[in-house]
Amino acid sequence: MIRRWLIVSMAALSVGVATGRTEAQPQYPSKPVELVVGFAPGGGADVAGRLIAAYASKKWGTPVNVVNMPGASGITGALHVLRARPDGYTLMMDVHAVSSMLFAVQSDVPYKMDGKTSIALVTLDPVIYTVKQDSPWKSLQDVAAAAKANPKSFRYALGGIAGVASFSVSQFLYGAGVPVPETNRVVFTGGNPALTALAGGHVDFAGQQWSESAGLIGGKKIRGLAVVHPTRLPGLPDVPTAKEAGFPSLDVVGWQGLAGPPNLPAAIVQKWAALVEEASKDPAFLEQALKVSKVIAYKGPDAFWKFQEEELKKYLPLATQIGIRK
């Protein structure tokens, strides 16, 4: 592996420290593990995948390689893993967009939501409601009032139809009593283009994930009105939580976890779950996650699956209500 060779040699070159903290593992994993990300490099799922892959590689001394298989909004990669041999050497980053949210939006997904082995929840990516920096709206109340007063000229951005924003924005608008069918829903191909359009003033309101919004908020091109999280986020002390903003019922969240093909041996599931649990307590890992705007939120196999079922229950009626369920 050129990458291992490079990592080792360059580490030695620049820092003067060799890596090789290899704990001999006789059983699993005895060869490189493929961690499939159904999206292009650089996205939320990819970043989370690379975080945990790097941690596991270092811990086990066996490479865990992130393999990007983008296509069909993540479905291509998911299908590849769910059809793979359940030997623990082909795993996937399971994310809201190929699990709970996708099944809420589509009735004919080419695989079953429970046709996988859930391993562990790794990260959460909280929703931040945003407006353009110089928008007259200072709070979620302002947005709701404006949208109610003049729904026909209210424009909001969604980064993809099976994405977080479909649910976060409509949950807010319906909750606030806005006549949603009269508003203008502008769908973009992803969180980044959606927020770029918001920063340019081509739409008025968005509700994307933290990792997507952090850059433009920091650059003072868009302004956060509320974050859907129990506490305020590090680095964004001025953005109130949804509860503080007066909307305690908002609860849409993006997430990334690990999953494998059906019938994955319990020992392998446990081994990975234990690794994620350990990582979630490692200060260095937490700090890295913070830098890429992710909240570490470990959940074990059963809790993770239950979490997804709850999510689906929550999103299904919403998707039907806003008429995006196909």
């Binding site: 292009a40 490099p41 650089g42 980044n192 850059g215 650059g219 091109k221």
Partner: peptide, 14 residues
């Protein structure tokens, strides 16, 4: 702005 125009720049951004 922190906006990547191409997939390669998105990786660079991360």
């Amino acid at each position: 702005l922190g906006i990547p125009a191409t997939p390669a720049l998105a990786v660079l951004l991360s």
